[in-house]
């Protein structure tokens, strides 16, 4: 355990934990977009900036990637921090002016309009979908491509994500809801990754319950009998 102070308040934390979850747990509001505790911290959105003072020297850093150490002094609401956050959200808003979540966040931080030409992107490039696909799902169906302002999250060669099992983890984790999933009778489509998979029909009740490809993958991974997924979860005895 280490002791630190956040905005003057003493906070205890487990050594090696990142600063952001500790501050959030302690009730400090720090905006963030690219953080999810199930994946490794990444630090792409730069919204969770705080000032950390150590041995009398202060500097600004993203709290999601900062491992706590004994005796640091964390400031979450200084003028410098707020200014940087406002500018970051302004930049993100200028990139994705149509995302309601971003609009809401910007409004809360006091950013009403942007001073730049608005782009028409929707993805904020936080990378959560790709990281979840790699670290939680293990499918590695999507990844960042290109660099600089051409950066984008895409399936291989911007085609169909052929390794995608349509589990939808990316759809749920997306902070701005732009991946999208559609289920129509016997098909499930992950819209953004252009991936459509046929659904398996339960032998007993006749309901479609999961994509073929996904079940087949699970079956092979776990070495289950071929008829294991013939019935849905509810019909399995």
């Amino acid at each position: 355990m280490v002791e630190l102070t956040v905005d003057g308040q003493a906070v205890g934390a487990e050594k090696g934990k990142m600063l952001l979850p500790i501050c959030l747990d302690a009730g400090f509001d720090i905006p963030h977009l690219c953080y999810n505790e199930s994946v490794r911290p990444y630090g792409a959105c730069r919204l969770c900036l705080v000032e950390v003072r150590k041995n009398g020297r202060g500097r600004m850093t993203t709290s999601c990637t900062y491992p706590v150490i004994e005796g640091i002094e964390v400031l979450t609401q200084t003028e410098k921090v707020l200014r940087a956050r406002r500018l970051v959200i302004e930049l993100i808003l200028a990139m994705c002016p149509g995302d309601e979540e971003i609009q809401e966040m910007a409004r809360e931080m006091g950013v009403e309009d942007v001073r730049f030409e608005k782009e028409e992107k929707d993805c904020i490039l936080c990378g959560l979908c790709g990281r979840v696909c790699e670290e939680v799902v293990g499918a590695n169906a999507i990844h960042f491509a290109n660099k600089g302002s051409n950066r984008e999250m895409i399936p291989p060669f911007a085609g169909e994500a052929t390794d995608c099992i349509a589990c939808g983890a990316c759809v749920t984790v997306c902070p701005v809801n732009v991946i999208g999933m559609r289920e129509e009778s016997d098909e499930r489509t992950i819209i953004r990754w252009k991936r459509t998979l046929k659904m398996k029909k339960c032998k007993v009740c006749g309901n479609y319950f999961a994509p073929w490809f996904q079940l087949e993958k699970f079956r092979q991974q776990a070495g289950l009998p071929t008829d294991f997924f013939d019935t849905c979860y509810s019909c399995r005895e």
Partner: peptide, 12 residues
């Protein structure tokens, strides 16, 4: 062009 694009602040 050469920013890797990871940080929103640098890329944008």
């Amino acid at each position: 062009e050469e920013s890797c694009g990871k940080c929103a602040s640098c890329r944008e």
